[in-house]
Structures are given as C-alpha cells and as structure tokens.
C-alpha cells in the first residue's frame, strides 16, 4: 500500500460512513420543524439515529453506496494515470472492507464481479489549477435519488414554462413534485440552466460540492435557490414523502452558456444521505486537511 492509496481509502470510508457537518445541521433543523408525534418526525428521528450509528460503527450510512465520483484538482504535470490506478485499487479495497457495496453491474450481461470497477466505474474528473495543491473531492450518489433526476427542454408547453428564470422555476418545482419521496427526501437539488444534455447534468451534479448553507454569488440565482426551497417546503411532501414540512434541505443552481436552439434545465436530486467529502493531499499523498 502506498500513502496515496491509504488516503483515498480513508476518504472513501469517511464519505460512506459520515455525513458532512453542514448536511447534519440541516437535518437536525428539519427534525425540529416536523410536528412531534408525526410519521415525518419519526422518520427524521430514525435518520438522525442512523447518522450516529453509521459513524460509530464505521459502516455505510446507506447500503446503496452509489456511483463513486472523484473530482480531482491538481497542478500541471500531476500524474493522472497513476492517480486513476491508485483510486481503482482503493475502491476495490473499500468494497472488500464493506465501506462500498458491490455496486457495479455490467449493463448488458447483468454480471456483478464484486469489485466496483468497470467502464465508467469509478468516475474521475480532473481539473488543472495553478496552485501546487492536490485536492480530491468524492461524492457517493445512490441510485434512488439519481433515478428522480430530470432534464427539461424549454419551452415546455405542458408546464407553461418559457425560456426565462420563471420557466426554470416551474420545471424545477415540477421535478420536486414528481420526485415526491422516491429520492429519499428531504433532498437537495443541484440544477444547471443551459449547457447541453451531457454538460448540463454534469454541472448540476457538481453543485453538490457546494456547502448546503452557502450563498450563490449571483444574486438572481441566490434568490431563485431560496425561493425553490421555501416553495418546495410548502408542498407538504415531507420526509420520505410521508407528508410534512421539509421536502428540500437545499437547492444549488448554476448556469452554463447554451446554443441558441437549446435551453436545458438539468435537475439532479441528492438524498438526505448526502455523502460528500474532500481532502487536500501533501506531495507524498498524505492527507493534510479535510475539506468539509
């Protein structure tokens, strides 16, 4: 084992078993909001107990340890091939240790070789920056919430959604309505306005790297984010779709340019079991800092 592999294994373990602090605060807040004695409140209590139990036992918060998605920021000259090989070894070991479920299936044959390795698994995104630091962020995104993501092409006649922010608001709220409790709410939305079908979804997922309580630097988007959360929480969908006050814990929205012919709004949904962590690495691969 080398240092980088140890660090990545620890990153996977901690991502799988511990909820980030910002998310935990939002969940506790939601627990307080729900009416005492309601099934929504008892769902939130079980969720809170589950968070503590997973951390104490060092076992996955959710059995669906999801798609394994790495985001790597590195200086020019950083060996991405070595990183990818090491990440694959760390994923395989994490699976053997039960931090990840045997979760990667051949889409044609249906075979699951139990390693979590295969085409597209794990997914790695590299981004070069001018700093000498190497930062690795990891998201484990379960299939239940991934399945309720939605992409809208505007204008959408059925929803009377035109090509403007009001139209975006309508389709985003439609995604919340359609998701109900199926994505394991209370959830968090990552949204991208613009881009193409691939880049839009990709950017919507990268919104999950933001902290739940941050503000959008674009004041118009910041207003829309807060409005989406406030409105969604009036719908009464509630935790698990049982009915209740908290349907969303957050909404994060970004924009990409588009071609004149296209206007996509891509919505990714993250479950309450929001598994996201990150580390800064020293030159030898040792963890110098946790990022969330």
């Amino acid at each position: 084992m080398n240092m980088l592999q140890d660090s990545l294994l620890e990153l996977i373990r901690r991502t799988s078993v511990e909820i980030p602090e910002d998310v935990h605060r939002a969940i506790l807040n939601s627990l307080e909001q729900e009416k005492k004695g309601s099934i929504a409140a008892s769902a939130m209590q079980i969720i809170d107990q589950n968070i503590a139990l997973a951390k104490n036992k060092s076992q996955p918060i959710c059995q669906d340890t999801g798609s394994v998605i790495f985001y790597v920021e590195c200086p020019p000259g950083y060996d991405q091939i070595v990183f990818e090989e090491t990440a694959r070894k760390a994923v395989k070991t994490a699976t053997k240790k039960g931090f990840l479920r045997q979760n990667s299936v051949d889409s044609i044959t249906g075979k699951n070789d139990g390693t979590n390795l295969g085409p597209g698994a794990p997914a790695l995104h590299f981004h070069q920056h001018r700093s000498a630091e190497v930062g690795v962020k990891l998201i484990l995104k379960g299939g239940g919430c991934e399945n309720v993501g939605a992409q809208y092409s505007l204008p959408n006649e059925k929803l009377a959604a035109g090509r403007d922010l009001e139209g975006c608001r309508k389709v985003i709220l439609d995604a919340v309505l359609q998701a109900q409790g199926k994505g394991c709410g209370p959830g968090i939305l990552g949204v991208c306005v613009g881009g193409d079908r691939a880049t839009g979804y990709e950017a919507s997922k990268q919104q999950f790297l933001r902290k739940i309580d941050d503000n959008n630097p674009n004041p118009e988007l910041d207003r829309l984010e807060k409005d989406i959360v406030a409105t969604a929480n009036k719908l009464g969908i509630g935790p698990m779709g049982f009915g209740g006050k908290t349907t969303l814990l957050g909404a994060k929205i970004c924009v990409l340019n588009r071609v004149p012919a296209s206007y996509f709004v891509s919505v990714s949904y993250m479950c309450w079991a929001y598994r996201r962590q990150g580390v800064s690495l020293e030159a030898d691969g040792k963890i110098s800092q946790w990022l969330y």
Binding site: I46, N50, A54, Q59, I61, C62
Partner: peptide, 13 residues
Amino acid sequence: LHAIGGAAQVLAE
C-alpha cells in the same frame, strides 16, 4: 410497508 430510505444502519441492527 414503507421503511426509512437510507437508514441502512438502524435497519441492519
């Protein structure tokens, strides 16, 4: 019967 989604530890216990 709806179990609590994501509560893998409480339910495993």
